[in-house]
Amino acid sequence: MTLRSLVATLALLVLAASPAHAAGTGSACHVPEAGHEGKVDIITPHITNGDHVEIPYWKFPFFLECTLPKWQPIHVGPLEIDLSPTKHVVMLWIGAALLFLVMLLVRRAHARAVTRGGVPTGGANAIEAMILYIRNEVILPNVGHHGEGFVPYLLTAFFMILTLNLLGLVPFGSTATGNISVTATLAILTFLTVEIAGIRANGVGYLNTIFYWNNELPAPMRPLMFLIMSPVEMIGKLTKPFALAIRLFANMTAGHIVVLALMGLIFEFGNLISGAPLVMATLIMVLELFVAFLQAFIFTLLSSVFIGQIREAHH
């Protein structure tokens, strides 16, 4: 299959996914009504999920509010899952499609460069350098020997988080990684990866990472320590992904709150003093750009470290 057809299919899919469905199930885009009087909470709607997205528009106020379709929830056993697209679901799609597209382009540039017997230049080279850095300096040294199998998961996690973080900084965008559901899911995926890696690396010895049974203790002490320490071990196991989820979520959300609060100050002042919050908001945005990379990096690094830690437990 050629790359061109792949890209075309992908683009078609993306196009089909939103407006066609939108038209079919009665979602509509409209110019938002202007002129709210009094205090409006601009922060909460911005950082939480919602059932509409904003798309650029050429007339004032330069965006349309599109209400997303509501689908029938599906039932899986006792669960009722509402798979209707929400703002963050759409951001997930866009981010994934964008990332996939970029990576395909990188791969094509790469393939072209390799047939010429050289290295790619420009952006492809930068992304290749990122891939290689994450793989060679973050993943492989931390997950331990024969860690090649974890590379796709961790690289995907890194680039997906990075893309979603960056999409949150783009106008009309929204930070899917600022949603606890998304970060918790990613953390759960890491948790599952870690535990599966532990089971595969340690076999029955994996149980030692959950239960505490120390044969060096005097015999009567063993059950007592087992009862006290096992919950602690389990909590230690669970708090790692928990911390991952909270860290990513809190970092992404906090930055946005700060930026939005500063922007709110601009309207609050409404005069020349507004320059100060403007400058600060800009600076915070730059910081956010850095944080977007940093948090993706930290998530990947910690996931690698956890995998490595459990793989070399009780050797």
Binding site: V138, N142, G236, F242, A243, L244, I298, L302
Partner: peptide
Amino acid sequence: PSSIGAAAKYAGLGF
């Protein structure tokens, strides 16, 4: 990276 990794193990200890 590796020293960050070594320190990072304890990132969740507070939790």
